[in-house]
Design a protein around this nucleic acid. Structure first.
Lengths: 159, 159
DNA sequence: GACAATTTAATTGTATACAATACTATTGAA
DNA sequence: TTCAATAGTATTGTATACAATTAAATTGTC
């Protein structure tokens, strides 16, 4: 007869992160309005500006998104002239995502716009660094739990 | 002729939060599989368990979601027997979301399941508290920037 | 070299998100 | 009281997300 403690919304770390994530999304959507980019499209371009071309799979690893999300997103980026999607000649299963000349040209404009926006956050590099380190801890814990669950599931399936 | 510093994905706070949010989503989706609940459905129930009934608008304020998201979500919760949607008799514009007997019965089961899962995170209350406080700072900064943008937009519109 | 197993993208189906619009009920001001 | 303004919800359209499936290409093994 143990009392079960209530789960209060405002005490949930998940909810803090969930709502912060949505706010960041709006923040960037608004900041990137002059370029017509959504937040997921923007991070796809960030990854590509660091290291293009990438296959859909490689980009997915980087952004933790699967082809079900990336394929339509990349088709939209292609339509808007940021990337090209080219089947690899050496392995026809792969699609290579290349940056267009326009994407290369506009890169610094985007970098600059984002740099300006980030300074609006009014946080020191130190503060941001600490927060990010903590988040990495949380994420690795979540990964660990997911892995455990996957193993349990596998073991159960064997019976 | 100032050099524009690159924006590196792994240094972006937004991306840390974005991917942490997605991981939490999976974590809860998996933990709540026995109840057939998604993460957004779960937080809607959390809010209602704290204080039902709520109008769609009140629930939206609590979760920071609008009717475009909530209406279909609540219809699904209704279909699955967790809530009922009733037009207010005193103000026919409002729809009141009530919990069903089933939702009340299952509340403690869900609380217990979630409590167990959270302990898997292996973080102290202190650590979680600190992280949440920092996230609140970030969110209020983002709100502040959004407000500034809205004001600028308004002023521009007046010209 | 044939062919089963694997890899890689794309597709399909379901569920958020949210801006913009529509629609109905209520309120408020002349 | 009338009726314009407002409030509350639903709808529509676009864009993620992701599980599950499909389809095509490649690899490994004999």
């Amino acid at each position: 007869m143990t009392e079960i403690p209530p789960v209060l919304l405002d005490e949930q770390l998940c909810f803090s992160i969930y709502s912060a994530s949505k706010k960041f999304n709006h923040f960037y959507q608004s900041a990137l309005a002059p370029f017509g980019l959504t937040y997921p499209q923007y991070i796809a371009l960030l990854a590509l500006w660091e290291d293009a071309p990438l296959t859909v799979h490689q980009l997915g690893d980087r952004l933790e998104l699967d082809s079900g999300t990336l394929t339509p997103l990349l088709k939209r980026l292609e339509k808007q002239g940021w990337v090209t999607r080219v089947r690899s000649r050496t392995d026809e299963r792969q699609v290579l995502i290349h940056l267009t000349a326009m994407a290369t040209t506009k890169r610094d404009e985007v970098y600059q716009r984002i740099g300006q926006c980030q300074s609006l956050l009014g946080m020191s590099d130190q503060e941001i660094q600490t927060l990010m380190t903590d988040l990495i801890t949380v994420k690795s814990q979540l990964d660990h739990v997911s892995e455990q669950r996957a193993i349990e599931k596998k073991v159960n399936a064997q019976n």
